Structure formats: C-alpha cells, structure tokens
Simulated scan of single mutants.
Amino acid sequence: MSAPTLAKSKTAKPRPKSPGDSGAPRTREEFVRALRRNVSAHGFLIGAVLCFSFFSWYPIVREFLLAFQKTEGGKTTWASWSNLTYIFNDPAFWQAWRNTLQFTGLALVLGFAVPFLIAVLLNEFRHGQGFLRLLVYLPVMLPPVASVLLFKYFYDPGYGLFNRILELLHLPPQDWLQSTDTAMFSVVIAATWMNMGGATLIYLAALQGIPGELYEAAELDGAGILRRIWHVTIPQTRLILSLMFLMQIIATMQVFTEPFLLTGGAGPEGSTTTVVYLIYQYAFNFNNYGSAAALGLVLLVLLAVFSAAYVRLSRDSDD
C-alpha cells in the first residue's frame, strides 16, 4: 500500500481570490462606491483650493501687477517703478511709517508685557481661575467696533470717564484724541484692552506647563517671586514669548480699525496715520490704486520677513 502524497493534483483548481486581495477585479458596485468616495474627497479639496486661490493668491498676484501699473481715464498702462518712486517721495509715506513704528513700539510695551504679567497673576490663583479667564477674554468676544466706540466715549473731553477720573484725582483733563501728544497713546490703550485676552490665555497655558518642582527648588534656594519669574518662568516660556513677540509685530504693523474709528484715521496733524490707513487713502480717497498697491507691496515684503522668522521658530519648537 503506497503512502499518501502531499503533492497537488495537476487537475486541482486554484482557490479563487477574494475581492479584497491585491490585483483582484472589483465588482461594479465597489468601483462606483470608491469613485464616489474619492470624488467627494477631491470635491471638498478642490473647493478649498479654489476659495484660497480666489481670495488669497489672486489678490497677491493682482497687487504685484497693479503696483507696476497706472490707470488713467479707464486705460491701464505699464508704469514700471513710477508708483514706488511716488510713494517714497511722498512725505506722508515716512510719517505713516513713523506713526506705525511708534504704535508698534508702544503696543509691544503694553500689549506684550501686560498680558504676560496678568497671566502670571492668574497662574497664582488656586480658585476662580475659570471666571477670571472669562473676564480677561471678554473684550476679545466683543465686536471691535463696539469696543472702539466704548473707548471713544471714555475719551470724550467733556463727559468721558477718563477725564472724570482725573477730576476726582484733582488732575487737569486731557484732550485724549485731539492732542498730538496723547492721540497715539490713547489708540494703543484701546487696542491693548481689545486684544490682550487671547495672548493672556496663551501665556497662561504655557505657564501651567512648567513643572512645579522648578518653583519648589527655587523657593528652597530662597528666591522671591521676582527671581522665580526671572530664573524659572521666563526661561521656561522663552519660545512662546518669542513667537508671541513676532506675532505682535506682524499684527500691530497692520493696525487700521482703532485709529480709523477713534481719530478718523489721520488724527490731529496726521499723528495717527498708519501705513494701512495711507493705503486706504491712496486707493479710496485719491483713486491712486497703483500707489496703494505699491505701498501694500512694501508692507508685504516687510511682513514676509517677520513671518519667515515666525515659521522658523515654530519649526524649531516642533523639533
């Protein structure tokens, strides 16, 4: 009697592959289902790309072209560098940059330092942090126009809240928005109050990520609160402070809403005319779209430098 063999019979048929096996032909229903799924996914992607192209890429390209063009009598001609030459020779250009840099400097002193200090104070509270965070973030949730009009009422030289406070302190009243000495500072105060809530919560989240052992070790070494902030808090939050510093510069150099609503844009003797407001003037007051685009191009290049630095810091933080 011969032993059973394990060899395959030549007549044995191969096992049919399941539809999920690689290289197996799909049924019509599976093909249609996969096609619908991919079409939906690509449809959403194409829609997002089209919106981004129309509202972001196209205006950027159009601005580049418009900065080197001139439109007169409904006819557009190539202007080469004349628009850039015009804005560089315009005294308002340099005044707008001085005002913008002044606003940025004051906003960094107040809008960068004050939220960090408030976050440090909030981090020390053990009870009611939720309510305090809501209270700090509340100005951000208000419409910007409503917040600016509220401060315009506070700054009123006759019945404004700030002059009433000065009167109670037996101090002389101030022409907050009507004086060249205080107009820009008044705008900075309003802008800081409106926008500091988001920065405060970001700083607070960074502070709560610092290990408590570091503070305990500092206390054992006899460090007071100022030394703990300087030797523990700031070094542990150096990266987020750098990122917020760059974001603050990028945001403040595009300021428009606050000076436009508080002082009418230009302010007394042009003391609150910013670069973005000058772009608005070129385009809508003087109908000089080429110069407006040229000034926007200059601002774009400058902000691109800070944005590149921000991206670099963000990438280093991820690594």
Results as ranks from 00 to 15, higher is better:
residue 183 A to N: 00
residue 303 L to Q: 08
residue 156 D to M: 05
residue 153 Y to T: 12
residue 13 K to R: 15
residue 203 Y to E: 00
residue 274 T to M: 12
residue 247 M to W: 04
residue 62 R to A: 15
residue 161 L to R: 05
residue 270 G to K: 09
residue 15 R to N: 08
residue 202 I to N: 00
residue 210 I to M: 05
residue 97 W to I: 13
residue 159 Y to N: 14
residue 243 L to G: 01
residue 59 P to G: 07
residue 185 F to E: 04
residue 133 R to E: 03
residue 269 E to M: 13
residue 305 V to D: 08
residue 305 V to K: 08
residue 64 F to G: 07
residue 238 R to G: 03
residue 155 Y to W: 05
residue 263 T to Q: 02
residue 198 G to P: 00
residue 149 L to H: 04
residue 108 L to R: 06
residue 251 A to M: 03
residue 45 L to I: 11
residue 226 L to P: 02
residue 292 A to W: 03
residue 152 K to S: 04
residue 103 F to I: 06
residue 45 L to Q: 10
residue 165 I to K: 04
residue 309 A to M: 15
residue 22 S to F: 14
residue 214 L to E: 04
residue 285 N to L: 14
residue 315 R to C: 03
residue 115 P to R: 04
residue 33 R to Y: 08
residue 20 G to C: 10
residue 115 P to A: 07
residue 52 F to S: 02
residue 111 G to V: 00
residue 274 T to Y: 09
residue 295 L to S: 00
residue 256 F to C: 01
residue 96 A to Y: 05
residue 183 A to G: 02
residue 40 S to W: 14
residue 110 L to P: 01
residue 316 D to M: 13
residue 186 S to A: 08
residue 113 A to M: 13
residue 288 N to G: 02
residue 116 F to A: 08
residue 86 Y to I: 02
residue 9 S to E: 14
residue 120 V to W: 09
residue 222 G to V: 08
residue 75 K to R: 15
residue 74 G to F: 06
residue 14 P to K: 08
residue 163 N to K: 05
residue 26 R to D: 06
residue 257 T to C: 00
residue 200 T to I: 00
residue 30 E to A: 07
residue 255 V to W: 05
residue 166 L to Y: 07
residue 252 T to A: 15
residue 293 A to S: 10
residue 293 A to R: 03
residue 236 Q to K: 12
